[in-house]
């Protein structure tokens, strides 16, 4: 009988269990009713089975979101593990939906499930992609907005993974600032 290496038999376990959420903007319903948990997974193989199965972000109708968060964390500021945190926010222009959005989202997912942020991976809660007519947004959420070393390391790694040029800066906003903002955007606590 042929001997199969364990590699071919067992699924590759991830450090964390992750949950994919889908939000569809239906104004006739309550906001939370529009947020659906798709499924959760904790192996590389199950991640790909999910990713290859669902619609690409760039093909989602405007007003929809995908979120991938560690199991047990809901993709909203109000969650106990998000409320003291913040997000690195990447604003895309309209052309980037076709050129960059899907690549950016996949590279972000691979950073999350692969624990690419090394000793700061525990600071990462998840990531969100918002598909919007006025410009799509991708954000990476961390659990504590008062940890500059972790936040800067995570921001640099994110830019590097997405191959965002050095001269293009991205900003980190604390959720508390975003919640209480008066203007259109919250102030950046960090930039990289």
């Amino acid at each position: 009988s042929t001997l199969l290496s364990p590699d071919a038999l067992i699924k590759h376990p991830l450090q964390n269990k992750w949950a994919l959420w889908f939000f569809k903007n239906d104004r006739t319903k309550e906001w939370t009713a529009n947020l659906k948990l798709v499924t959760s997974f904790d192996t590389v193989e199950d991640f790909w089975a999910l990713y290859n199965h669902v619609q690409k972000a760039s093909k989602l109708p405007s007003g929809c979101d995908y979120s991938l968060f560690k199991d047990g964390i809901q993709p909203m500021w109000e969650d106990g593990q998000n409320k003291d945190g913040g997000r690195w926010l990447i604003n895309l222009n309209k052309q980037q939906r076709h050129s960059d959005l899907d690549n950016f989202w996949l590279e972000t997912l691979l950073c999350l499930i692969g624990e690419s942020f090394e000793e700061y991976s525990d600071d990462v809660n998840g990531a969100v992609v918002n598909v919007r007519n006025k410009g799509d947004k991708l954000s990476l959420w961390t659990r504590d907005a008062t940890r500059p070393d972790a936040i800067m390391k995570i921001g640099k790694k994110l830019k590097d993974s997405l191959k965002i040029p050095i001269k293009i800066a991205i900003g980190f906003q604390a959720h508390t600032d975003t919640m209480t903002k008066t203007g259109s955007t919250a102030r950046d606590r960090f930039r990289v």
Binding site: V44, F47, I113, E115, S161
Partner: peptide, 18 residues
């Protein structure tokens, strides 16, 4: 404790394995 992490290239290799 020890952490399980995966390189991007390895994850991409796994995409098409059966």
């Amino acid at each position: 404790g020890s952490k399980i992490f995966y390189e991007r290239s390895f994850l991409l290799q796994c995409r098409n394995s059966p």
